[in-house]
Computed example of a mutant assay.
Amino acid sequence: MEKGKRYVLPMDRTEYNGYGTYAYKVSDDCWSTLLYATDNMVQSILINRDAVTQADIDAAPDWVKSITPIEVKDNEQ
């Protein structure tokens, strides 16, 4: 069975000193932002709750929909 595509939502122009801000889904009706390091710590976004589906994005507030999503690629072997 193929997994559905998942995405992370990096916010434009938020990088500072190697850190960037990402939007994530807290619950069905609540979104927030988190600050992550751009390299190693971003992996936690890919592994944890912060990756979302296209359906999540479609149902999100306009500020979330305005973010260009980046597809998560699983490291399955």
Rank of each mutant, 00 (worst) to 15 (best):
Y19I: 00
A23W: 02
D29W: 06
A59H: 07
D74R: 15
Y36A: 03
E15T: 06
Q54A: 09
Y36N: 03
C30T: 08
N48L: 08
A37G: 15
A59V: 03
W63K: 05
V72K: 10
A23L: 04
T14C: 03
K3G: 11
M41Y: 15
D50W: 13
K25W: 05
K3V: 00
V72W: 11
P10S: 03
S32E: 01
E2R: 15
Y36S: 08
T53D: 00
Q43T: 11
I70V: 15
Q54N: 03
G20M: 06
I45G: 04
N17T: 06
G20S: 11
A60E: 01
G18A: 04
E76Q: 13
D28R: 09
P61M: 02
P61Y: 04
A60D: 01
D74G: 14
T38H: 13
K65Q: 09
Q54I: 06
M1S: 09
D74E: 14
M41A: 13
T53Q: 01
E15V: 10
E15W: 08
V8S: 08
K73I: 15
N48G: 13
S27R: 08
Y19R: 02
V64I: 13
E76K: 15
A60S: 04
K73W: 10
E15P: 06
Y36R: 08
P69N: 02
Q54T: 06
K65I: 06
K3L: 13
R49V: 00
W31K: 02
R6S: 06
R13K: 13
T14Y: 05
E76N: 15
M1C: 09
A37L: 11
S32K: 03
D62R: 10
T38P: 11
R13W: 12
I57A: 07
Y16C: 01
V8P: 10
E2N: 12
G4D: 01
A55Y: 02
R49T: 04
S44C: 14
P61D: 00
D28S: 13
C30K: 08
I45P: 07
S27F: 08
M41N: 14
V8C: 10
Y19L: 04
A55L: 05
G20V: 06
T68M: 09
R6M: 11
R13I: 05
R49G: 01
A23D: 01
M11D: 02
A37Y: 15
V8N: 05
E71Y: 10
G18C: 09
D58T: 07
D29P: 07
E2I: 12
A60N: 00
D39S: 10
I45F: 13
G18F: 12
V42Q: 09
